[in-house]
Design a protein around this nucleic acid. Sequence first.
DNA 1: CAGGCACTGTTATTTTTTTCACAACACCTA
DNA 2: TAGGTGTTGTGAAAAAAATAACAGTGCCTG
Lengths: 205, 205
Amino acid sequence: MISEKIVERLSLYRWLLETRLENEVSNLFSYQLASMACVSPAQIRRDLMTIGYSGSPGKGYLVADLAKSIGKELDGAKPSKVAVVGMGNLGRALVSFISDRRSHLQIVATFDTDSTKYGRVICGCRCYAQNELEKIIKLEGITVAILTLPSDAAQAVADRLEKAGVTGILNYAPVPLKVSKKVYLENRDVTAALEKVAYFAREGD
Amino acid sequence: MISEKIVERLSLYRWLLETRLENEVSNLFSYQLASMACVSPAQIRRDLMTIGYSGSPGKGYLVADLAKSIGKELDGAKPSKVAVVGMGNLGRALVSFISDRRSHLQIVATFDTDSTKYGRVICGCRCYAQNELEKIIKLEGITVAILTLPSDAAQAVADRLEKAGVTGILNYAPVPLKVSKKVYLENRDVTAALEKVAYFAREGD
DNA sequence: CAGGCACTGTTATTTTTTTCACAACACCTA
DNA sequence: TAGGTGTTGTGAAAAAAATAACAGTGCCTG
């Protein structure tokens, strides 16, 4: 089990590596990757140590190989299936963001309460009525959900998701959800993020 | 200067306090606030110590008063002015999210390159053409920017923002931006967040 | 008013995370 | 091949963050 911070950074490293691959860069030194990721070279080396990856003193790290090694650690054997609940502006934005990256994260269903939306295919993904939530989740074996719906509905949906078998929730609704210990919850409150940025923008980092 | 983590939590606390206020709760104990925020009571007390706020052993913390004290620490003397660059689905979602909360964060301008958008008022905020960026930023005294635009344009816009005087950037574009040390940068890559959730959903927290 | 209770503020401790420092190693050059 | 250079892997140190522990305090009760 890797700590949260390290997982976050590994995910960032992989993605930096992949964009470098597109530019045909085949190897990188720790200090190069470090400057891209805005961390120290020592941090890079230590993080790679935790996943047991070794470079070579002369050539640094093999970009493609390292990216694959990170994937081996972060990705499961099978792709994780993801649902998006709430297809307002934010939901649609996220679906289109994600669906053309990361093949091991498959958005297989979206849900909404608006009857003009469900039944249709939005951003390349079928939108279901919200009362079909449990059925589809179980049918598809969905384990991760993204919540992009109004605050007042979020807790009820979270409860239903958990009961249906979801073990990870990424919550964009500005509400503090209560979930059991079994479910991993990550909150991404936009306002909180903005307050933080405003604070440090003012105080001068 | 307060550390990042503490700022994040204080922001969360305030918001929890405010929602409690709406429910006419006038005081709270550290363990109550702790359970809402999913942190330990000791953490709460320590965080409040850093902003020099004191409760009383008998009654805990006065909700309204504490919220105001946090505000005194997090908010500047004047409201921070914010710009949103890129009014796709994500940009519109964020504007409507934020504009009806947090009076000390004022979204005063949005920008887009699409000529069918600029000139209009979207989600209650005037949308300008992107080539007016420098002019409006300086005119309005905008210090914080939210980037919700395609990856390939992000770095160029970030450079222009910095030159125009922006000191805080909240970046939703999936690109690692390079900015000078003077600018506080917070990345909110959706894919990275989802990867993290998927990882812990699988590994069982 | 004395005593017990329940909570706070703060110091001390532990744990986690990051950085430092350096031996070991590959590679290049002569 | 020997020596110099520049990078890695990792143990040790430092720094940061979280937790625990407890004295001090207001409040209630009898």
